[in-house]
Structure formats: structure tokens, C-alpha cells
């Protein structure tokens, strides 16, 4: 259930690093805890991300949760299906495919090496155990 190739934060974000671009989303565990996701508020392209700092908000019907950046960097793309103005607006993608179609932002990372210091799949699995 927890993809081996990704890195994770304790706040339930995942990172997929390709070169110096990181794709970022929330984990299956997180979407399951939130329930039906109805809206994701994301920053504009160009937004400066700071590790551990807020970059957005994810809303389900009955709760909200803040998104914290796993990396330092700059947003280069946001997932268009999460934009409410888009014809393809589909926040359910985060519930359905949290590691795929439900990705949230792509960022040019300042220090790609720092990503390997995040939790690996095993570390994240033990972090969510008991919940």
C-alpha cells in the first residue's frame, strides 16, 4: 500500500523525486483519515516552498488539514484537476489515486539530496502503525 520508491513526511505528504523536480501529494493513509476530499487549496506557480512550512489546505466535507512542504524549492506546476476553475475539476482523484492522478504540486527542489533524509516507506509504515 505504501510505494517503496517514494519518500514521506510525518505529516503524511509524499515526494517523488525526478532529477531536481519533486512531485508532492498526500498519502493513502491521509486521504483515508480525511474522508471525501472536496477541495484542495494550492499555491500559485512560483510560490517559494520552505521545508515544514504551510503550502496549502485540503478540505473534506467535515474537516480541513494543512499541507506542509517536505522540501525547500519553488512550485513549477500544480495539478490542474485540483483547480476549481478547470473543466476537469476532480478533487476525488486524491481519494482514488493519492499517489497517481491525485498528486498536488511539482517543485524545483533546492537540494535534491535532502529528499533522501525524509522517511522511507518502511519508516513511514512504522510511523502510521497503531493509528
Amino acid at each position: 500500500m505504501i510505494p517503496e520508491e517514494l519518500r514521506y513526511t510525518e505529516e503524511h505528504e509524499w515526494v517523488r523525486l525526478q532529477g531536481d523536480v519533486a512531485e508532492i501529494g498526500i498519502t493513502h493513509f491521509a486521504q483515508d483519515q480525511l474522508g471525501d476530499i472536496v477541495f484542495v487549496e494550492l499555491p500559485a506557480v512560483g510560490f517559494k516552498l520552505q521545508t515544514g512550512k504551510r503550502f496549502g489546505v485540503v478540505e473534506s466535507v467535515k474537516t480541513v488539514s494543512e499541507l506542509y512542504s517536505p522540501v525547500d524549492g519553488e512550485v513549477v506546476e500544480i495539478n490542474s484537476v485540483l483547480s476549481q476553475d478547470s473543466d476537469q475539476f476532480d478533487p476525488e482523484a486524491v481519494n482514488r489515486e493519492p499517489y497517481g492522478a491525485g498528486w498536488m504540486i511539482k517543485a524545483k527542489v533546492a537540494d535534491p539530496g535532502a529528499v533522501s533524509k525524509l522517511l522511507d516507506a518502511k519508516g513511514y509504515a512504522s510511523h502510521t502503525e497503531g493509528h
Partner: peptide, 9 residues
């Protein structure tokens, strides 16, 4: 859109 409101946030 109740996620905007005080009883949730």
C-alpha cells in the same frame, strides 16, 4: 463549504 467555518477551522 462548511470547511471555511469556525466550528471546523
Amino acid at each position: 463549504l462548511q470547511a471555511r467555518e469556525q466550528h471546523i477551522r
